[in-house]
């Protein structure tokens, strides 16, 4: 079964992985790295932890998240601000770092 269809077995549609993925642990670490580029403007970081992730703020607050499905509500709660991918400041920062 293609890994994309893994989303049927997990909680969120984005959980599946493409067939070129490495081990589940390596894939989670890679996903965390992808997420960290987007989380940086909000002062948050994500780390793979067991089969899940830990989201942390600069002030030491932390939350456990399952995947991208519950990442953004948790990020908004932890960071105390909305995480808007259309925000001009966020976009400018990402474009500069690209």
């Amino acid at each position: 079964m293609c890994g994309l269809c893994g989303s049927f077995a997990h909680g969120h549609w984005s959980d599946g992985v493409a067939s070129n993925a490495q081990t589940p642990t390596a894939e989670r670490a890679r996903r965390a790295a992808v997420a960290n580029a987007a989380l940086a403007p909000f002062g948050l970081t994500l780390k793979s932890w067991g089969g899940r992730y830990v989201l942390s703020s600069r002030t030491g607050k932390a939350a456990v998240v399952e995947g991208f499905g519950d990442l953004w509500p948790a990020a908004e709660k932890l960071g105390g601000r909305s995480c808007d991918p259309l925000d001009a400041t966020v976009l400018a920062r990402l474009e500069l770092g690209a």
Binding site: S14, V17, F68, L71, W72, C83, P85
Partner: peptide
């Protein structure tokens, strides 16, 4: 992963 991250973020907001 990038696509899923972005779309999840867009739909959340």
């Amino acid at each position: 992963a990038r696509f899923g991250l972005w779309l999840s973020m867009l739909l959340n907001a």
